[in-house]
Design a protein around this nucleic acid. Structure first.
Lengths: 204, 204, 204, 204
DNA sequence: GATGAATGAGCATTCATTCAT
DNA sequence: CATGAATGAATGCTCATTCAT
């Protein structure tokens, strides 16, 4: 692979290439079969690697799920943070989150499904591992709300409850979208949801 | 069983007694370990019956989960319907659902956990079986919202999105409550949530 | 059951009635499903008794099979002995056995099947238990052959081999008959088989 | 495995090696315990592999039995066909089948037992699967008899009945041999049986 | 690093047998 | 005697993980 040299930094390193192939495959497979119903060998086949190869990149099956979350949710949160950065008002920020949330999930339907499904695993070990990235997202929402209250751009008595409403609504919408075969595009409801939020938070 | 005679109608029939013992045990066990991580033998031990006995009352493990849902969600919905029946305004009805939802879940913490966890199983067979009772609840909420719009007691552009917000918010609150070790009692946030709903739906 | 008194000896005693009902049911059930594939509860249902009742009449499942053999093969051998008794020549006796063997099996198809199937169980305990009645039948055939040789009505160098041929042929014929759906009646082949025996044993 | 190079064609390929080890083990185990009484783990232990390994080579327990038959009976029939090929007269052919049948069974006592035992399983699925190779053997015998009649080397009114006698006799002899602890060698009775056949079929 | 054959612990389910009624 | 609900030992099969090549 001498020819690679010059462009090496533009490429995904082969090492990472396989890592991501496995993660992509796992996302698909978990989404279709669920974590417990999906065999590691299915992921391997989908990723085009041998069963054993998986264990060169991940400690065990659980680690795949956990890594998947860190990786994907990390991207998700980063994307949201970036899009928020350009907003000036709380109103804009909230609308921006709604839109980015929907856009991201729509572009990553499998991830949306996995999130829906596995977000609430009860196996305590898994829960704990997964809760990290999610908490980060919660924190981000709460920050926006907090700041909004401070700047008196919204009215809200309890930040946490506000976040529960905000996230819960988006989550329920995704849940419906994910479980229906012929879902209406999520874009259609962004406005509707925002309108409700406007009333709830008394957005200026 | 001569002694039974007079009090027979006060007793649970023995047959049903065991059925419910198993369902109770399963609720506890699924809540603690999750459906897949929980062995049938664990349920049996918790219910105080032999492993084989389970299969006199349920077709298989999956059937336990499904029955659990029909049974519990059935009760839940019935309780909500009863408490709504006495309300005269949409405002009262919505507040009533919030309170009953929280009360029921608080009294049945294990059920709350199981609901949170297994609501989103991806195993298609299980999902399908479980979706029935949940849909019924969704329908009930949508009816209340619909009627409120008709009577002009609330303002709402899209019933389904309204229901997503309403249910999603309650669900997210329960999710937080369930996953925290030392949760603040749910009663404390009923008012807070209602206040948000009032703004969102412009409740008169 | 006072009314029974006078006719009691003409009746099957109630005790025996149920015993035979179970044996009949077992014959049917074993024939259809095979010994191992057939549950005791299936026999009970077919016999119209409770599962537990079976164990008032039989020690265990194996005992049913063994009893079935003793009982049925006992009848079978007795019937053959009776029909042979009236014969005067070896020729007649051999033909008589062929005819009675076929007649009995045709009238008790289930028994024929069970015999075919379970005759050769390898579970040593079962084999041993079953071999008794069968040996008795072998002995009977060998006696007829022996006597025939002695009286010079047939020619045969080895009695045991002679019996193997005789029984083996009948058994193979029954086996074909049992396993074909639309078998030609066994009567049709009695003559054909006898003709072969005549040649083999050089029957006078 | 450089050392393998030169002798590779003399070796059994490793893949097949394990396949046959399992089949051999199953033959022994089924012979000793019977199909239903023999646990898969017993076969695995006897074959020197893990339980799970069995399922890399066979679909399930039943598949082992069926494969065993195809494989062994296939060999058996091939061997008989080869030995027949060199015979010129029906007389020789029939004697040859007797001798080869006995020789093969004597060299494969376990197979003989399994054949005796499982030939007549009533579980319809198993029967069907097993009947194939047996039918082939029947067909072979019938062909020899048919040809003999055509060439007027034997006299026989009904081919099928002739085959029943021929096979039934051999089978009964094997059955006796298999079930006796100290059997006289089968070679001793080849002549005796042939002599009976000679009479029965009027072999020229 | 990559492979995939081999492993064996783990589990849902069955069913002969018991025993309180 | 009769019942049938309850028992729990027994077993076929799966699948995450390992390791020799």
């Amino acid at each position: 692979m001498v020819w690679m040299k010059g462009v090496y930094d533009l490429m995904i390193k082969p090492r990472e290439e396989k890592y991501h192939a496995i993660l992509d495959a796992a996302t698909e497979a978990f989404a279709e079969y669920g974590y417990y119903t999906c065999q590691v060998s299915k992921i391997a086949k989908l990723a085009g690697v041998a069963d054993g190869t998986i264990y060169l990149y991940f400690k065990n099956k659980e680690d795949i799920l956990v890594s998947l979350f860190s990786d994907r949710m990390g991207n998700f949160i980063r994307e949201i943070q970036q899009s928020i950065a350009q907003c000036t008002t709380t109103k804009e920020r909230l609308f921006c989150i709604i839109r980015t949330h929907f856009k991201y999930m729509q572009e990553n339907r499998s991830l949306a499904i996995v999130t829906q499904i596995e977000l609430r695993q009860s196996d305590p070990k898994i829960r704990e591992a997964i809760s990290g990235p999610l908490r980060e997202y919660f924190h981000l929402i709460e920050q926006v709300l907090s700041e909004g209250v401070q700047k008196e751009e919204i009215t809200l008595m309890d930040i946490k409850v506000g976040r529960q409403m905000f996230f819960g609504t988006l989550d329920a919408a995704i849940s419906d979208w994910v479980s229906s075969r012929k879902p209406r595009p999520l874009e259609g409801i962004e406005e509707l949801i925002y309108e409700l939020m406007r009333g709830a938070f008394n957005i200026k």
